[in-house]
């Protein structure tokens, strides 16, 4: 038996408790100072409801867009050779590495009416800045690496024999993709989608600059929490935080179930 179990586990639990768990429990303490009707009125006030719709809707669409483009990016990075591939591969992680505030002001300026991209969109009647489209753009930026980095390793590990087997059984390239490759990628794709979605739900820094934070229109839920905090109404802020926490946990649970489901093919239980 190796030494250090008590020390390492003890420290781990102590640290997690101090930094994460005890502070987190304050949320429930604060919520309990509200009566049920107060709580319900807060979490269902019109601005909050609008913000849930906006946050969940744009996050979902952004994750969807990422699932599509992320799959193509991962596919191209794994399967094809082209100039600058290594740099492109490294750059995929930029949204992880670039601070959200920097991403936020950059996207806001790029898509502003006079910005590099905005000036081409404005004549078309498309306004990205201070609109839901802008939020979608920011959330797509944030979520990109999740899909690519979950799909890429699975795609790399796909044995070429599987495709050869399908081909030798008479399947054409399109059938090989739909019937063999895509089903094998599906769990990774779904996991990546859920991760990107979860990240988008809580995103703050990259969104607030481009969103304009117009109540009922472009105010995401974290901004509502922030607004309540600015008014020192901590109980209200906490109530809305509880809604978000619960949805993140449900999503986390979903991801875990998804991973369990993925492993279903791989568990060997010989009967």
């Amino acid at each position: 038996m190796l030494p250090g179990f008590n020390l390492s586990l003890g420290f781990t639990l102590f640290y997690l408790g101090l930094i994460v768990l005890i502070p987190l429990s304050a949320v429930f303490w604060k919520t309990s100072t509200l009566s049920w009707s107060q709580f319900w009125d807060t979490v269902t006030m019109p601005t909050a409801l609008a913000s849930y719709r906006l946050t969940f809707g744009t996050s979902f669409l952004a994750a969807l867009a990422n699932a599509f483009f992320g799959l193509i990016v991962a596919w191209v990075l794994v399967r094809y050779e082209f100039f600058g591939k290594r740099i492109v591969d490294a750059m995929v992680d930029l949204p992880f590495a670039l601070p959200t505030a920097v991403a936020g002001i950059t996207l806001a300026t790029l898509y502003a009416q006079s910005g590099w991209i905005g000036r081409f969109l404005t004549p078309l009647g498309i306004h990205a800045a201070n609109s839901q489209l802008g939020i979608f753009v920011a959330l797509t930026f944030i979520g990109l690496p999740f899909i690519v980095r979950t799909v890429q390793p699975v795609l790399e590990d796909l044995e070429p024999e599987l495709e050869e087997a399908a081909t030798s059984l008479g399947a054409n390239r399109w059938q090989v993709f739909w019937r063999v490759i895509l089903p094998m990628l599906a769990p990774a794709l779904l996991t990546g989608f859920a991760l990107a979605f979860a990240r988008a739900l809580g995103e703050y820094g990259s969104v607030i600059f481009i969103a304009g934070n117009i109540p009922m229109k472009t105010q995401i839920t974290p901004v509502i929490i922030m607004a309540e905090l600015d008014m020192f109404d901590y109980a209200k802020a906490t109530a809305i935080a509880v809604v978000m926490l619960v949805s993140s946990f449900v999503l986390l649970l979903g991801i875990n179930i998804l991973q369990w489901w993925t492993n279903r093919y791989n568990t060997t239980n010989l009967a």
């Binding site: 599987l162 050869e164 030798s168 399947a171």
Partner: peptide
């Protein structure tokens, strides 16, 4: 895909 040869792979390559 059009040769109609049945091929069984060393590591089976089952889906």
């Amino acid at each position: 895909s059009e040769r109609k040869a049945g091929f069984a792979f060393q590591h089976y390559a089952l889906f």
